Measured scan of single mutants.
Amino acid sequence: VTLFVALYDYEAITEDDLSFHKGEKFQILNSSEGDWWEARSLTTGETGYIPSNYVAPVD
């Protein structure tokens, strides 16, 4: 499982989006939707859509 880490803070715009803070880690559930990925936060356990350009793979 490839994990991703937030590079910036993000505040949800719609109820389907997931708010997060810089440094938060995610498991990507679906990355086939283009620039918005469905993800689960490993910090909160919540799922929602995140902007793919706000995250990077964890080394």
Rank of each mutant, 00 (worst) to 15 (best):
V1Y: 12
V1M: 12
V1R: 08
T2N: 12
T2S: 11
T2I: 12
T2A: 11
T2L: 12
T2Q: 14
T2M: 12
L3P: 06
L3Q: 08
L3W: 09
F4D: 00
F4S: 04
F4Q: 04
F4H: 07
F4E: 01
V5S: 04
V5D: 02
V5A: 05
A6R: 00
A6Q: 00
A6Y: 01
A6D: 01
L7V: 06
L7Q: 04
L7C: 08
L7N: 03
L7P: 00
L7D: 02
L7H: 03
Y8K: 08
Y8E: 08
Y8D: 07
D9S: 08
D9K: 04
D9F: 04
D9H: 05
D9Q: 04
Y10R: 05
Y10A: 01
Y10D: 01
Y10E: 00
Y10K: 03
Y10N: 03
E11W: 10
E11S: 10
E11C: 13
E11R: 08
E11G: 05
E11L: 10
A12D: 02
A12E: 02
A12S: 11
A12Y: 02
A12K: 08
I13K: 14
I13F: 09
I13D: 09
I13C: 12
I13Y: 09
I13E: 13
I13L: 13
I13R: 14
I13V: 14
T14Y: 15
T14V: 07
T14N: 14
T14P: 03
T14C: 15
T14Q: 13
T14A: 13
T14G: 15
E15D: 15
E15A: 14
E15R: 10
E15H: 11
E15K: 14
D16Y: 15
D16G: 15
D16V: 14
D17M: 15
D17A: 15
D17N: 14
D17F: 15
D17Y: 15
D17L: 12
L18Y: 04
L18V: 05
L18W: 04
L18D: 00
L18F: 07
S19P: 05
S19Y: 03
F20P: 00
F20N: 00
F20C: 03
F20V: 04
F20K: 00
H21Y: 11
H21L: 11
H21D: 06
H21V: 14
H21F: 12
K22Q: 09
K22H: 06
G23I: 00
G23K: 02
G23A: 03
G23H: 04
G23W: 05
E24N: 05
E24V: 03
E24T: 07
K25E: 09
K25C: 10
K25M: 15
K25P: 05
F26G: 00
F26R: 00
F26L: 09
F26V: 03
Q27A: 09
Q27H: 11
Q27K: 08
Q27R: 08
I28W: 02
I28C: 04
I28P: 04
I28H: 01
L29N: 06
L29D: 05
L29Q: 05
L29F: 07
L29T: 07
L29Y: 06
N30V: 07
N30F: 07
N30E: 07
N30L: 06
N30Y: 06
N30D: 14
N30Q: 08
S31R: 11
S31M: 14
S31N: 13
S31P: 10
S32Q: 13
S32K: 11
E33L: 14
E33M: 15
E33K: 15
E33Q: 14
G34K: 15
G34H: 13
G34S: 14
D35E: 13
D35F: 13
D35N: 10
D35L: 14
W36C: 07
W36T: 06
W36I: 08
W36E: 03
W36M: 11
W36G: 03
W36F: 10
W36H: 08
W37V: 06
W37P: 01
W37Y: 09
W37G: 00
E38S: 08
E38A: 08
A39C: 05
A39I: 03
A39M: 05
A39Y: 01
A39G: 05
R40S: 05
R40W: 06
R40N: 04
R40Y: 09
R40I: 12
R40A: 05
R40C: 08
R40L: 13
R40K: 12
R40V: 11
R40F: 08
R40T: 14
S41R: 14
S41F: 03
S41E: 03
S41L: 07
S41C: 07
L42V: 09
T43N: 09
T43I: 09
T44C: 04
T44H: 04
T44Y: 03
T44L: 02
T44F: 02
T44M: 02
G45I: 02
G45A: 05
G45H: 07
G45S: 05
G45Q: 07
G45F: 08
E46D: 10
E46Y: 09
E46L: 14
T47E: 09
T47V: 13
G48D: 00
G48S: 01
G48I: 02
G48L: 02
Y49S: 06
Y49N: 08
Y49A: 05
Y49D: 02
I50T: 00
I50E: 00
I50Y: 00
I50H: 00
I50Q: 00
I50F: 01
I50N: 00
I50S: 00
P51E: 02
P51A: 04
P51F: 06
P51K: 07
P51I: 03
S52H: 08
S52A: 13
S52G: 07
S52V: 09
S52P: 08
S52R: 13
S52L: 05
S52M: 09
N53G: 10
N53D: 09
N53A: 14
N53Q: 11
N53S: 15
N53C: 12
Y54Q: 05
Y54D: 02
Y54S: 11
Y54C: 08
Y54M: 11
Y54W: 06
V55L: 11
V55R: 00
A56S: 09
A56M: 10
A56T: 11
A56N: 06
P57Y: 06
P57A: 09
P57L: 08
P57T: 05
V58G: 05
V58D: 10
V58R: 03
V58W: 13
V58F: 12
V58H: 07
V58T: 07
D59V: 14
D59I: 12
D59E: 11
D59A: 12
